[in-house]
């Protein structure tokens, strides 16, 4: 079912890639390649987004109004003007913080902790 724009909960759970993209965008506006690198860094190289995957995701997030294309660009001499930058929306922020909350909650449950310790 299509998530409702008024209810952040309906977007959850997020896929790891989606979560990371929103997380990265909630602290800065970025273009495609910057996002790819930042996502790779935060996931310690486990999530490597190729152009097709990334822009397909971006198109979907824009459709769902979680992000928008930024109209503001960095100073012209700082970067290539042709690049499209993305910015997170208020809804996006809500969604990513609910997800974070959900994860924290999840990690606090006793059985999850037990499982995590079993891994140590």
């Amino acid at each position: 079912m299509r998530p409702s724009p008024t209810d952040p909960e309906s977007y959850l759970p997020l896929k790891p890639g989606t979560f990371l993209v929103l997380l990265v965008l909630s602290s800065e506006e970025l273009h495609g390649y910057g996002l790819k690198k930042e996502v790779a860094r935060r996931s310690e190289g486990r999530i490597d987004m190729e152009p097709g995957m990334l822009y397909r995701l971006m198109a979907r997030l824009v459709d769902q109004e979680l992000i928008v294309e930024a109209d503001r660009r960095p100073l012209p001499d700082q970067d290539d003007e042709r690049r499209r930058y993305y910015r997170i929306t208020q809804l996006g922020r809500d969604v990513v913080s609910r997800e974070a909350h959900r994860m924290v909650q999840l990690s606090q449950t006793a059985d999850v902790r037990a499982l995590a310790h079993a891994h140590d």
Partner: peptide
């Protein structure tokens, strides 16, 4: 919509 960006990224 995304061609330029994707080529840039590539």
């Amino acid at each position: 919509r995304h061609e330029t960006d994707m080529v840039e990224m590539f």
